[in-house]
Amino acid sequence: MDMTDLARLQEEFKSQLAEVSGPQALENLRVAYLGRKGKLAHLFSEMGTLSREERPKFGELLNQLKRFIERAVSEKEGSVGGVDSDFSYEDPTLPGVPPRLGRLHPITQTIREIGDIFTRLGFEIVDGREIETEFYNFTALNIPLDHPSRDAFDTFYTEQGHLLRSQTSTVQIRVMEKRKPPVRIIAPGKVYRPDEVDASHSFMFHQIEGLMVDDRTTFSDLKGVIHLFLRKLFGNHIEMRFKPHFFPFTEPSVDVDISWGRGWLEILGAGQVHPAVFEAVGYDPKKVQGFAFGLGVERIAMLKYGIKDIRLFFENDLRFLEQF
């Protein structure tokens, strides 16, 4: 056994390959050379008989031959078809192989869509805690203790006397405490309210809080920004109306409706930041002004996608999630 044997074997293979016309013949040829009891396997097993000096050189040539044969067989497969002809594209009506596709939850998708609109308007996305003190959820937001206005914000309490935030407005306070104006933020996150669970209520849901504070932003600007946002989110045809409302932390306060079907639908709450809120964070309400708004993410996703039950978001049935 020497190097010339290998050259001869290569020539022999080439001529046999040239005669192959069908997939089975090709497979037979492959087995004859590359199979467990094929010619190359035999040569590998014989290598032990060579001297230490000859071994590496011979091994390398044998490897080269093996790779040559492998490549030649796979190239030939292209023209004669593989052995398992199921894998040829012979039936174009068979479906494609379904890829394993990851997806974002529709709530995340909605938060991103809204966040993207506001980041393009120069807002920054910030994070906030979920377990809070009464100060951040109520007091600093001009919601006095033991006042009926707290009824609208029924709240979960923890053993330690903290609470689960019932609104993302807490983040307004956290951010303004730390920064000087101008402040332009969007704060998405989970909020909690002990509501009776039904098709439109959940004890956990998501809100997005927005805040724009500087030395000049007016109620007119609030209208302009909110309308622009709603048009980007729902389309340019969307009409908007402002209904006066009451929130302790904004004044003037507004419920924003959008045209929906033949009527109007409440979509978010907003208003100019109340001077008491500025005072709570150490801003001077004579010099600082701006607006805040809050919207329910589930509500918007339900409208956009025609979802009829809020519980679907948290049941996480793949047949639901896979539609997004």
């Binding site: 101008p182 007016t218 007119s220 600007d221 209208k223 920004v225 622009l228 402002f242 006066p244």
Partner: peptide, 20 residues
């Protein structure tokens, strides 16, 4: 009338962008 108040777009000053 809220709906008689015109819509305007604010002309904010640029602020340092920060990310969490």
């Amino acid at each position: 009338g809220y709906n008689r108040i015109p819509e305007t777009l604010p002309s904010p000053t640029l602020a340092e962008p920060t990310v969490d």
